[in-house]
């Protein structure tokens, strides 16, 4: 619908670097709001799940009645983008979870939490992401997860030199092990906003 108002997008704001995501989305002209409650989720046409501690986001989302509406939103095809902990939250299967930790699911993936080791193994590198073209994306991996296996419904967008998968998509879902929200590269956020506009 040409000339329509910009759709509102949300950033899950239970814990983590949600302010950075809101900043990037607003810099791209989006109307971005923090989402902590079901009534806020109901207002948005797309959702970013930020970096942070996935076990805390899981616990709070269930305690405050957000987990079921989030699952329903995934099932309804709402565009979502998960970075790091957000990728974990969207994965169908999670390895190395804390006791009792659940995910929202929807993304046909097996994701391993904290796959590289302690903070001493956190790193930054340049990553070739063919779907975004040149130049390579500078990516920060902070106690990051990796995609251990990709189901038939999901597609690999980027891998490390050793072949480990770190960016994926599936229909309206997008996930990265790393954090474009803190390196200033807005291409994945634009990609997400394009999905929101098309949905």
């Amino acid at each position: 619908m040409a000339g329509s108002t910009t759709p509102t997008v949300g950033v899950l704001a239970l814990q983590g670097d949600f302010r950075e995501h809101i900043g990037v989305l607003r810099s791209l002209g989006a109307d971005a709001i923090p989402v902590k409650r079901p009534e806020e989720l109901a207002r948005v046409s797309g959702l970013v799940i930020p970096g942070g501690e996935s076990s805390v986001m899981d616990k709070l989302s269930r305690l405050f009645g957000l987990a079921e509406p989030l699952k329903a939103a995934v099932a309804s095809g709402m565009p979502m983008y998960g970075t790091c902990a957000g990728l974990i939250m969207l994965a169908d299967t999670l390895l190395d979870a804390i006791n009792g930790q659940q995910t929202l699911g929807g993304f046909d993936l097996v994701v391993r939490r904290n796959a590289f080791g302690s903070q001493l193994d956190s790193f930054e590198t340049d990553l070739d992401v063919p779907v975004l073209g040149e130049p390579p994306m500078h990516a920060m991996f902070i106690r990051a997860p990796v995609v251990e296996s990709v189901g038939p419904r999901a597609t690999v967008l980027a891998s490390l030199d050793d072949g480990r998968v770190v960016a994926v998509k599936q229909d309206n879902l997008l996930g990265t092990s790393f954090h474009p929200e803190i390196t200033g590269d807005t291409r994945f956020h634009q990609y997400f906003l394009d999905r929101v506009a098309a949905a």
């Binding site: 942070g52 903070q119 956190s122």
Partner: peptide, 22 residues
């Protein structure tokens, strides 16, 4: 592509960013 760098200031400040709200 570019060399991976461990233990950079950005990666370390980044971990603190991930703890926010916690």
């Amino acid at each position: 592509l570019g060399q991976s760098q461990l233990g950079t200031s950005r990666v370390n400040r980044g971990l603190a960013e991930m703890l926010k709200g916690g």
